[in-house]
Design a protein around this nucleic acid. Structure first.
Lengths: 227, 227
DNA sequence: CACGAAGCGGAGCAAGCGCTCCGGATAAGG
DNA sequence: CCTTATCCGGAGCGCTTGCTCCGCTTCGTG
């Protein structure tokens, strides 16, 4: 299974929002000047607590969440939160990057486990919809893919889907003309279905998934897909 | 085509939010008391202007819209707006009822035009996704169907879908086990797909629709739907 | 231990929202 | 035409939300 690992390119560095250091804009590396002291232990601890709490809340409520709620849950004041992440958007970005990467990694593992390309595709959707469709902020962001430039994590996920698509296509199992974008859009659509039926009719989305997957099969369709 | 017409039950009375008249709670018809004068002409005009503007804005931006924007677009002050519709929710409700009914009526017409049950089903989805999936407030509300009690207009629409489902099923064209709820959920899912791809990739949802419809066909599926 | 840079907390600001209030305008009955 | 019930407009209140400010605390170092 020669899926390129997109995560290996981006090391587990603490994302981009660590501390821009405004002075570094003019002097990229002020070698002779006063050296910045290493971050304090409590600061690092708080940073992780904030990310953890934010991830939970963003998953539950989406990006519309109140920043105060994140501060409360991480046991940290507003000042602390905003020193680590100067804009709400920075925090959201950091969390999404992390969670998308986790998802992509898990998806790649699942996809490569299966011998049969069709089983791999099925397993991917099953896992995605069971595990990540409930993450409101992630699904929100995935829907924005068509409107703007992708988050790095989305690109990683796309690669996995692309690979699944190619494999099933090469094996002659996938309906001709189906693209990666089609599968991505299907994922977002079904993700929405999961969110709205999850609490009242858990499992109903499974029927839709089954229907859609059968529509994706290579056999038994009267006419080709429209352009 | 014996589809029961749900609109015939609810006459085109000016909805429920006309003017509750708090006193009427205790005295339903105070015959002897001072008779309420008929509403003034400008009041009626403004009411229609508000509903019209609200419909436009709700379609564009969904229920999260600012009430001031509605007032601005209808050329009316806040006071006027809130006298006609004491709560934002009342206005939204009125508009949704109107637009859902329009939709249901159009859908019923389209569905009954087609001789072939499958053509009817296809035409229904095509029309719904082309014409109404862009109405953000309507799609929002449709998604809430699973979480709470239905709006009257949603019930009307459900009846149409139910009829389409029954017809296709009786003709042996629909995959066994497919329910009205499945079709409704599919509609909401695809509606979401339309909204997110509409501006950047118009027409991509057509491929998803095609795939889903083929998955709904009675023939060529390896296994029955899950419970 | 003592000191200061780094970090902390939360009151508070500005903007946006739903909704109210009330002085002034006006349509309709006499 | 006059009177008045009815209606109009928009300033403004109370609340939420993103974000800032600044006095106080704490960690790490010499």
């Amino acid at each position: 299974m020669a899926v390129p690992d997109p995560a290996s390119a981006t090391h587990p560095q603490p994302a981009s929002a660590t501390r821009p250091d405004p002075a570094s804009a003019t002097r990229p590396q002020p070698k002779g000047t006063t050296r910045r002291r290493a971050p304090r232990a409590d600061a690092l601890r708080n940073r992780e607590a904030i990310i953890q709490a934010a991830a939970e809340v963003l998953a539950e409520q989406g990006t519309a969440v109140d920043v105060r709620e994140i501060a409360r849950r991480s046991g940290v004041g507003m000042g602390t939160l905003y020193r680590h992440f100067p804009k709400k958007e920075d925090l959201v970005h950091t969390v999404l990057l992390r969670d998308f990467s986790t998802w992509a990694r898990a998806a790649r593992a699942t996809a490569c486990d299966a011998e049969d390309p069709w089983t791999a595709l099925t397993a991917f959707f099953q896992q995605a919809l069971t595990g990540y469709a409930r993450h409101r902020a992630i699904m929100e962001n995935l829907a924005l893919t068509w409107a703007g430039p992708d988050l790095e994590g989305v690109r990683q996920l796309r690669l996995v889907i692309e690979h699944l698509c190619d494999r099933a296509c090469a094996a002659g199992l996938l309906r001709p003309g189906v693209t990666t974008d089609d599968l991505l859009l299907l994922l977002v659509s079904l993700g929405h279905a999961v969110q709205i039926t999850d609490e009242c009719r858990p499992g109903q989305w499974n029927r839709l998934l089954c229907i859609s997957l059968d529509g994706l099969r290579a056999t038994g369709h009267p006419q080709p897909l429209p352009a």
